[in-house]
Design a binder for these strands. Structure first.
Lengths: 195, 195, 195, 195
DNA sequence: TATGAATGAGCATTCATTCAT
DNA sequence: GATGAATGAATGCTCATTCAT
C-alpha cells in the first residue's frame, strides 16, 4: 500500500479519478480503472486494499490540490482579508473543476460510514487556517473572543458550502460574484474588529 | 406512487428508514425492507419506482420532521435571536437522532447524481427562514444589506454543518455547548444591527 | 430451501450430481449446474444456500440410494449372513456406479470441515443395521458380547472401504470376488457364534 | 523437487502443514505458506511444482510419522496381539494430533482425483504389516486361511477408521477405551487361531 | 538459487426488478 | 392491489503462477 514503487500508485489513483469523475463511483468497476491505468486487475489490489479504499485517497488528493493552490496564491498577501479572498476564489475554482470528485467523496465516505475521515484529511488545512487566524488576531485584524479551532473549520466549511451550492446543487439564481461577495462579507462582518 | 392507499407507502418508507439507519444504504436490500415492512417483494414497486426513489422520499421526510419541530418550538418566540436559538437546538437534536439517515441522504443523493434535489426539498424551509429574516430586518433586529435568499440558505447550512461536525464527523474536542454558542455568536455578530 | 416446490430442488440437485461427477467439484461452477438444470443463476440460491450446501445434499441422496437398494434386495432373506451378503453386493455395485460422487462427498465434506455430517447422514443406515444385528443376536446367529452401535458402524465401514479400495484406489491385484469373499469372511469369523 | 537443498523443502513443507492445519486447505494460499516459511513467493515453486503437489508430500510425511512411531513403540513386543495394540494406540494418538492434516489429505487427494496415491504412499506400511502377519501365521498366532495383502490393508483401515470416527466425525457416545477395545477384539476374534 | 511485483483468468454471490397468478 | 418465485446481469476480489532481476 506504499505510495512509492515506480509510480503505479499514482497511475492507478489518477486513472480512478478520471474514470470515476466521468461515470460516477458505483458505475465504475475496478476493471474500468485498471484498463485505464494499463495494469492488471490484480495489480490494483497491490496498492489499494479494496474499492472503498480509493475514496479517502482521492479525497486526500483533492484536499492537497486545494491546499497547495491556496498556499501558492497566498504569496505576498498581507492581510487576513486578502487571504480569505484567495481562499474563496480558489475554492470556487476547484469546486467547479472537480465537482464530480467532490460528490464522489461525499458519497464514498458516507457509504463507507467513514465521514470522520474527512476531518482527518482536512486536519492540515484546518491547522494552517488556525494559524492564519491566530496571527490575524495578533495583528488586531479580527476579534479575539472566538474559539480558534471551531472558527477555522467553520470558515472553510462556509466557503466550500457556498461554492458547492453554486456549482453542485445548481442553484444559480444569482451570479458567482454575488455568492463570493456574500460569503466574504458574511465572514468579515462576523470577525472584523469593530473600529 | 401516491402517498395515500391504506398507508402502505408510509409503512414501507418507515421500514426503509429503520433498516437503512441500522445497516447503511448499500448493505440494505429491498428484500430487507419488505421483510421489515411485512409486505411482498413486488409490493415495494407499487409505491416506489426503484430503490433510488427512496432517497428523496426519506430526505423529504427528514426535512419535514426538522421543519415541523422547529416551527412548533418557535411558538411564542418573538425575537429573531430566540428563533435562531431554537433552530440550533432542534438541528442538533435531530442530527443526533437521525445521523444515519442524514448520512444516507448524502450518499444516496450523491450516488444518484441528484444533489440538486436537496435544494428542492429544502425549499420550503429556505422560504420560511427567508420570511423570518425579512421580518427581522423590518424589526430592525438585523442589518438590511444582505442577500435574503443566500443568507437564509447559509444560516441553515451553518447550523446543520456545525451539528454534523459534532455528531457525524465525531469531532468532539469541545462540548456541545461550545458548538452551539459559537455558531449562534458567529451568525449574530455577522447580522446584528450595530447599535 | 424446501425440497418441495415443483421439483426444482431435485432438478438442480441431479444436474449438480451429473456435472460434478463429470468435472469434479472444484472444476464445476454454479453456472455449469444451472445451465444443465435449465434454470437461472439466482434460482440456485433459492434452493441451496451456497455451493458447499450441495455436498451434504448429494451425500444424503447417495446414502438414500444405497439404503433403499439394500432394503429392497434384502426382501425374503432370512439369515444375518445372507443380509450381509446383499450389503456387500450392493455396496460394491453402487461404489462402482457412483465412485465419482463418493469422491466428491469425501472432498466436499472435508473441505467444508463438516466430516461429522457423514455420521448424521448415515444415522438411519446405522440404526437399521443395529436392529438387524440385535435380531441376529437374538437368533443366536452371532455373538452377543459386542457393542451394538460400534459394530454396526464398523461393518458398514468395512464393506464400504473394501469396495472403495477396489474401485477408487484402483488396487485390483485381486478379483472383485476375492475382495467380496474376504470382507464377508473377515466379518463372519469375528461375529459368528462358536458352534 | 529435490528433498535436499539446505532444508528449504522441509521448511516449506512444515510451514504448509502448520498453516493448513490451522486454516484448512482451501482457505490457505501459497502466500500464507511462504509467509510462514519466511521465503519468497517464487521460492515455493522451486520445491513444489504446484499447490496440489503439496498434498502427496504432506500425506507421505504423515504416513512416515505414523509408521516410524509404530515401529519404535513395537520394540520388544513379541506377540502379534501386542503389536496390534501398539498400532491401535499410536493410530488413535496420531489421529488426534493430526486430525486436520488427515482431513486435508482426504480432501486434497480427492480433489486431485488421485485417491490412488493413498495406496502408493501406504505401500511400505502395508508391506510391513503383511510381514508381521506372515510371521504371526508361522507362529500359529493367527489363522492361515486369509489373503495376506487384503488383510493387512483391512486391519490398517479398520484401526484408522475407528479412530477417525472417534476424533474426526466427533461421535463420542462411548469412551476412547471402548473404541480401542472393540476394534482390538473385532480383529482378534476374526483372526485368532481357534484353540 | 532466490526474489516478489505483476499478472489475469475465473467465479460465487447478490439483488433490483419482473410478471404470472 | 398484492404476491413472491424466478430472473440473470453484473463485479469485487482471490490466488496460483510467472519472470525479470
Amino acid at each position: 500500500m506504499g505510495k512509492s514503487s515506480d509510480g503505479k500508485y499514482d497511475i492507478i489513483l489518477h486513472a480512478a479519478i478520471d474514470v470515476i469523475s466521468e461515470k460516477g463511483l458505483d458505475k465504475t468497476s475496478i476493471s474500468d480503472i485498471v484498463k485505464k491505468a494499463g495494469v492488471a486487475q490484480g495489480t490494483f489490489y497491490l496498492y489499494f486494499s479494496s474499492k472503498n479504499a480509493l475514496i479517502p485517497a482521492i479525497a486526500d488528493n483533492l484536499l492537497t490540490i486545494t491546499f497547495e493552490s491556496v498556499k501558492e496564491k497566498i504569496q505576498g498577501k498581507e492581510t487576513f482579508w486578502s487571504i480569505l479572498e484567495v481562499m474563496i476564489d480558489e475554492t470556487f475554482r476547484i469546486t467547479k473543476e472537480y465537482k464530480n470528485i467532490i460528490i464522489l467523496c461525499y458519497s464514498g465516505l458516507a457509504i463507507d460510514h467513514s465521514m470522520e475521515k474527512w476531518e482527518a484529511i482536512y486536519q492540515p488545512y484546518y491547522d494552517w487556517l488556525e494559524n492564519i487566524i491566530k496571527k490575524a488576531i495578533q495583528q488586531n485584524e479580527i476579534i479575539s473572543d472566538i474559539n480558534l479551532k471551531w472558527t477555522a473549520k467553520t470558515i472553510i466549511n462556509l466557503v466550500e458550502n457556498a461554492s458547492e451550492r453554486f456549482y453542485i446543487s445548481q442553484v444559480q439564481d444569482d451570479t458567482i460574484e454575488v455568492y463570493k461577495i456574500e460569503v466574504f462579507n458574511f465572514i468579515k462582518r462576523s470577525l472584523i474588529t469593530p473600529s
